[in-house]
Design a binder for these strands. Structure first.
Length: 268
DNA sequence: ATGTCGGTGTCGCACCGA
């Protein structure tokens, strides 16, 4: 089962790119971020015609997250993080799909730092950690996928020193990511490619993609049950080179069969 | 500071967020 995350940066403006990518990449489950579309403007029909059902949490102008599936019904379990009734931003959606609990997230950018936006980002991660702490130990595979807006380490940014004060690389934010991994989550991409330079985002500015001046900020985290089924984790760089494309590119994992189930089946 | 996007409304340029 192929599970992907893709910050599309405008789901309607980017619809041709999204559909092209669905056609060639053939993911089974997709988490989308930065829809930039109100709830009633999500292109559900075009996506359904490609074979995917979807749930989404839209918002006028900014944010917005969705989950797509071509492997069975999406059973929504949550939209929005608990812990702040004043938070109306569409940044978290969660569902059970085909035996896997999937969370799609779009974390706050947090710039400029310091400032209220940065404070909101830190509080948002406190709420995320509080919620995910209750999911990591589940007896089912749990996959957290999205744009975390966190550069985890020096290896994940083309010129670390230029990003020290940025809200994506600030010590407080990297510390939140460390605490998250400390709960028991596995960073799938880094786990599969420990020494590699891996980017998932390149600014539109100054030929950043052509210079490979990128960041790794889109992550897929696995609980131990999901990690035991991990076959591979990859960045799909091709869509970033397409015309009228997002500044992010998709990240995906392949989960193999549940060995416990297979054993049960073969025992029959 | 720079630069380049999508989306929105004050509507076909200026803005915001990223």
């Amino acid at each position: 089962m192929k599970i992907a995350t893709y910050n599309v940066n405008g789901v309607n403006g980017r619809l041709p790119v999204l559909l092209r990518w669905l056609d060639v990449a053939q993911p089974d489950i997709v988490c989308l971020q930065e829809l930039k579309a109100p709830q009633d403007k999500f292109p559900e029909k075009a996506i359904r015609e490609r074979g995917y059902e979807s749930i989404w949490h839209g918002q006028s102008r900014w944010n917005g997250v969705a989950i797509l599936s071509r492997v069975g019904t999406i059973h929504e379990t949550r939209r929005g993080l608990p812990g702040d009734p004043d938070d109306v931003q569409s940044r978290y959606i969660e569902a059970a799909v085909n035996g896997v609990l999937i969370a799609g997230l779009y974390a706050p950018n947090g710039n400029p730092r310091p400032g209220p936006k940065f404070d909101f980002k830190l509080r948002w991660f406190d709420r995320l950690l509080a919620h995910l702490d209750g999911l990591v130990g589940m007896d089912a595979p749990v996959v957290i996928a999205g744009d975390f807006n966190i550069i985890p380490s020096d290896r994940d940014v083309y010129v670390p020193d230029r990003w020290r004060d940025d809200a994506l690389f600030a010590p407080e934010v990297r510390e939140a990511y460390s605490r998250l991994l400390g709960q028991g989550w596995i960073d799938a991409l880094r786990h599969e490619h420990p020494g590699e330079t891996i980017y998932t985002f390149w600014k539109y500015l100054r030929y950043a993609f052509e210079r490979d001046a990128g960041l790794r900020i889109d992550h897929i985290l696995l609980n131990p049950v999901a990690a035991s089924r991990l076959v591979t984790a990859q960045v799909d760089k091709a869509p970033r080179s397409w015309p009228k494309t997002s500044d992010h590119t998709p990240v995906w994992i392949e989960l193999g069969d549940d060995k416990r189930k297979r054993r049960k089946r073969s025992a029959k």
